[in-house]
Measured scan of single mutants.
Amino acid sequence: EIHIRTNGEEQARKVYKMLAKRNYDVKIEQHNGQWVVTAS
């Protein structure tokens, strides 16, 4: 499982799309105001 911390919604969405293209199961979560993308 991969966790990627991003500094904002826009970046989180870019990372989300990139990983989704590679057939990862991707989730975006917010932790303490930080956007974290989780891929498995």
Rank of each mutant, 00 (worst) to 15 (best):
T38K: 08
D25K: 14
E29D: 05
V15M: 07
W35S: 00
G33P: 00
N32T: 04
A12S: 02
D25V: 14
G33I: 02
T38L: 08
H31A: 09
V36F: 12
Y16F: 11
R5P: 06
H31E: 10
V15L: 13
E9I: 14
K21H: 09
N32M: 07
E9W: 14
R13E: 05
K17I: 11
S40N: 08
I2S: 02
V15K: 03
K17Y: 12
V37D: 00
K17F: 09
K17P: 01
R5L: 14
A12H: 00
G33Y: 03
Q11D: 09
E29W: 14
G8V: 13
G33W: 03
V26S: 02
V26P: 05
E1V: 15
L19R: 00
R5K: 10
K21Q: 13
K27Y: 07
Y16H: 05
T38I: 15
M18I: 11
V26H: 00
G33L: 04
T6I: 12
L19Y: 06
G8A: 10
A12R: 01
A39Y: 14
Y24L: 08
H3G: 03
N32I: 03
Q30M: 11
K14E: 10
Q34R: 07
L19D: 02
W35E: 00
A20Y: 07
Q30W: 09
N32D: 12
Q34F: 15
R13S: 04
K14I: 11
A20L: 15
K21L: 13
M18G: 04
I28Q: 01
D25G: 05
K21V: 08
N7F: 09
D25N: 13
E9N: 03
V36H: 09
G33V: 02
I4D: 02
W35P: 00
W35F: 05
M18S: 07
A20V: 13
G8P: 02
E10D: 09
L19N: 00
V26K: 01
V36R: 05
N7R: 11
Y24W: 10
V26Q: 00
G8W: 12
K27W: 08
A20I: 13
Y24I: 06
A20F: 07
H3N: 09
A39H: 05
V26D: 00
V37T: 00
Q30H: 10
H3S: 12
L19K: 01
A39W: 12
A20E: 10
K21M: 12
A39E: 02
Q34V: 13
A39D: 02
Q30C: 14
H31T: 09
R22T: 06
E10I: 09
K27I: 06
W35L: 01
I4F: 13
T6G: 03
Y16I: 05
K27Q: 06
V26L: 04
S40H: 10
I2V: 06
N23R: 06
T6D: 02
E10K: 13
K14D: 07
M18V: 08
I28V: 05
A12T: 02
Q34D: 08
K21E: 15
E29V: 11
Q30N: 13
A12E: 00
T38H: 08
E29N: 08
Y16W: 06
Y16Q: 08
K17W: 12
K17T: 11
A39G: 06
K17G: 06
I2L: 08
E1R: 13
E1S: 12
K17R: 11
S40A: 06
V15Q: 02
E10F: 08
Q11G: 05
E1Q: 13
Q30S: 08
G33R: 03
N23A: 08
A39R: 03
K27L: 05
E9Y: 15
G8Q: 11
V36K: 03
Q30Y: 14
A20N: 05
V15P: 00
W35I: 02
G8N: 15
Y24F: 11
E1Y: 15
A20D: 04
Q34C: 11
L19P: 01
I4N: 02
N32H: 07
E10P: 06
V15C: 13
W35G: 00
R5V: 15
K14A: 11
N7P: 06
L19G: 01
R22A: 12
G8I: 13
V37E: 00
